[in-house]
């Protein structure tokens, strides 16, 4: 009997040791470097995952979080912030990590289902109670009496989705006249008095500091702000058309291997796709991929006509055309 117990304990010990890897404490530590609005989601999800991991393996896992503007976070990982997993706002930020640091494969996006995006979101408007400026659609954002709050597309992933959503609308409404699209975008950013570095900073600027008439926000961020500050303070306006935002996740191979957390990191990301993870995402106002859970939360997410990033030739091209140094964003905000 004793022998039997020992023979079971040994492999378990071996697994534990290999998972612990270089972490001297023995218990594995996972660092999730994420973007701004996911704070509440991962706070809850980490606790649940750690509980289940403990039940399954007997191992106590510590999951650490770092949040900030998506572009800024990618930059930190490139500069050596040793993330085991990254859960960022858009694919091009993870592409940037792959390109500049080689810490993960260039084909990372095919490793998990749904373009490695376990949940989606879109861009909506948050306006002040009663919608005093009667903002209904994208066309209202360029009115001279409207102040628009959005983060800086250079540092924030949400801001880049905002920008592309606006661009898509302008293209549709002008029949693809590039000059009109540029004029619209120029006016839009003229109406933006501050560009915070991350989505959460913009929400605080709008909600807490009372600046601006409309906040361009992640749907999840807008729903959260509405809940945090009370329904009476703000209202969500769903525009006629918006973008399907796919915030992707990936294991950062190099650092996970270095920390000996590859299997753990993989299990952690898979948990996002599991029913509990999907349910939690929906509860935190992300649109779940799981159709059953999506159906249950359908009332929370209004039907919007959505276009996706393929319209811009994928993130790599969108990033190069619009947001890289000297790109369209630089051109329209110059002067």
């Amino acid at each position: 009997m004793r022998n039997c117990a020992r023979s079971k304990a040994l492999p378990a010990l071996a697994v534990a040791l290999s998972l612990a890897g270089v972490a001297w404490a023995g218990n594995p530590v996972l660092l999730n470097v994420s973007y701004d609005p996911t704070r509440e989601l991962y706070h809850e999800l980490n606790a649940e995952f750690a509980k289940q991991w403990k039940q399954k393996t007997g191992e106590t896992v510590t999951i650490r979080q770092s949040h900030g503007g998506s572009g800024k976070q990618a930059r930190s990982v490139i500069d050596g912030l040793e993330a085991d997993v990254v859960t960022l706002a858009l694919a091009s930020d993870i592409d940037a990590i792959a390109r500049h640091s080689g810490a993960l494969d260039k084909d990372w996006q095919v490793r998990l289902p749904n373009n490695s995006a376990p949940y989606t979101s879109t861009i909506v408007f948050l306006v002040r109670a009663g919608n005093p400026k009667s903002i209904r659609d994208w066309s209202d954002l360029v009115r001279p009496d409207v102040q628009v709050i959005t983060p800086n597309p250079k540092t924030s992933g949400g801001a880049r989705w905002n920008y592309l959503a606006a661009w898509g609308y302008a293209e549709d409404s002008s029949g693809g006249d590039q000059q009109k699209v540029r004029a619209y975008m120029t006016q839009l950013f003229k109406n933006a008095p501050v560009l915070d570095t991350g989505a959460r900073g913009s929400t605080t600027t709008f909600a807490r500091r009372g600046i601006g008439d409309v906040l361009l926000a992640w749907e999840n961020e807008a729903l959260l702000a509405e809940r945090e500050f009370g329904k009476g303070e703000f209202a969500i306006v769903v525009p006629s058309v918006s973008i399907l935002a796919e915030p992707p996740v990936a294991v950062v191979d190099k650092f996970a291997a270095k920390h000996g957390t590859t299997a753990l990191a993989q299990a952690y990301l898979e948990f996002l796709y599991a029913p509990e993870g999907q349910e939690m995402a929906a509860r935190h106002y992300y649109r779940p991929r799981d159709p059953g859970i999506a159906a249950r939360y359908a009332r929370q997410f209004p039907q919007v006509k959505l276009f996706d990033i393929a319209r811009f030739g994928g993130w790599e091209q969108a990033q190069r055309t619009h947001f890289d140094d000297g790109g369209v964003f630089d051109q329209i905000t110059r002067r």
Binding site: V22, S76, I78, D79, G80, L81, E82, H100, S101
Partner: peptide
């Protein structure tokens, strides 16, 4: 930083300075 002057050397010796 990893992309900085001393980054590769520090990484090779597993010394963490920034972050």
């Amino acid at each position: 930083g990893m992309q900085g002057w001393l980054g590769p050397w520090l990484e090779a010796h597993d010394i963490k300075i920034i972050f």
